[in-house]
Amino acid sequence: MFMLLVTELLRWWYGDGWRGRARLASVRLDGTIDYFSIGLLVKTLFSPFRQISAGRVDGSLNVQMRALVDKLVSRLIGAMVRTVILVVGGIAIALQAVLSGLLLVAWGLVPLLPVAGAVLAFVGPVL
């Protein structure tokens, strides 16, 4: 019975357990990507920021020029804000991805830890 349980534990660890970890990491990464609205930011990088007018502006050339400038300024501000968030978000996502990757690798090494501990104890490095 003991051997059966050990075998089943290892089977799960390197099978469903590992896959589950990978899925969890992916879900968390998706969450972070959604939190920073990465897809939306990329799609609307040069869209006006918090636009206050919509559609075509009718009026004299002066009015139209002012609207055009307003929109340009709005787009410029939008691009800046979005770029900053994209950069911050990109860094956060990259860090999380690296961390998740490391954790996944570590997961695979956990069953080897008792052996590694025994070897290290024999080799003798101490803190």
């Binding site: 534990l9 799960w12 660890w13 469903d16 357990g17 589950g20 956990v110 069953p111 830890l113 008792p114 052996v115 590694a116 501990g117 025994a118 070897v119 290290l120 104890a121 024999f122 080799v123 003798g124 490095p125 101490v126 803190l127």
Partner: peptide, 24 residues
């Protein structure tokens, strides 16, 4: 004392059982 590595290494066993219990 280098034997401390054995204790650290064997901490993996209850950790694994704990994970197994929680997820399967």
């Amino acid at each position: 004392v280098a034997a401390g590595w054995i204790l650290v290494g064997f901490a993996a066993l209850p950790f694994m059982v704990l994970q197994w219990y929680s997820h399967e």
